[in-house]
């Protein structure tokens, strides 16, 4: 659903649970729209070619590089950025809290993209082990080299998922 304007076309987006309309040129990447038009600062373009993962967002729950996806092509699909992973009453979400607890941040330019990727992967693969998540994070680069702390956060998340699953499983 779109209409032409001088700026391109008006596109309806579902971002972090809210519906909004933005006028965007047809060739505008989603990363630019989210950062410059919607004001979501967690979305950061660092490489511009889908390599570094700093602009990672979830589209229908899957992690994508928003510098490579055109806004006009998102359509009905829901978009979630790291800001949208904050829990009720503004408290950090589960993945975010694990990053905070494990000091999994330094300069932090890459960290929201990391959080979004971990959240997406664990959402799709609730039984994932640390090594699987590690491979899923290979498209998110951290120049500070915070990886050890990030993996510690992933370890906590995997462990709590397992203990949660164990608690939910009736004993024989």
């Amino acid at each position: 659903m779109s209409e032409a304007t001088d700026d391109g076309q008006v596109v309806r987006l579902k971002v972090n649970g809210a519906e909004l309309s933005v006028a965007v040129p047809g060739d505008e990447p989603l990363a630019t729209t989210l950062r410059d038009r919607v004001g979501l600062r967690s979305v950061r373009t660092a490489c511009g070619i889908g390599i570094c993962g700093s602009c990672t967002v979830q589209v229908e729950g899957r992690a994508v590089s928003s510098c490579l996806m055109l806004t006009a092509a998102v359509g009905e699909r829901s978009v979630r950025t790291c800001e949208g992973l904050v829990g009720a009453e503004g408290a950090p979400g589960r993945v975010q809290q694990a990053f905070v607890d494990n000091r999994a941040y330094q300069c932090s330019y890459c960290i929201p993209g990391m959080v979004v990727s971990v959240d997406a992967y664990l959402g799709e693969h609730p039984d994932a082990d640390v090594d699987e998540v590690r491979h899923a994070l290979s498209g998110n680069l951290c120049r500070c080299g915070t990886y050890v702390s990030i993996l510690a956060a992933v370890h906590d998340l995997v462990a709590s998922a397992r203990s949660g699953a164990a608690a939910a499983t009736p004993a024989d």
Binding site: R41, R44, E83, A104, Y105, S108
Partner: peptide, 19 residues
């Protein structure tokens, strides 16, 4: 082992850089 005071902003992405 004191966390950085703006840890949540760093992780959520709401910290303000020059950019």
């Amino acid at each position: 082992d004191q966390p950085m005071p703006d840890a949540v902003d760093r992780v959520v992405g709401t910290i303000r850089f020059a950019v």
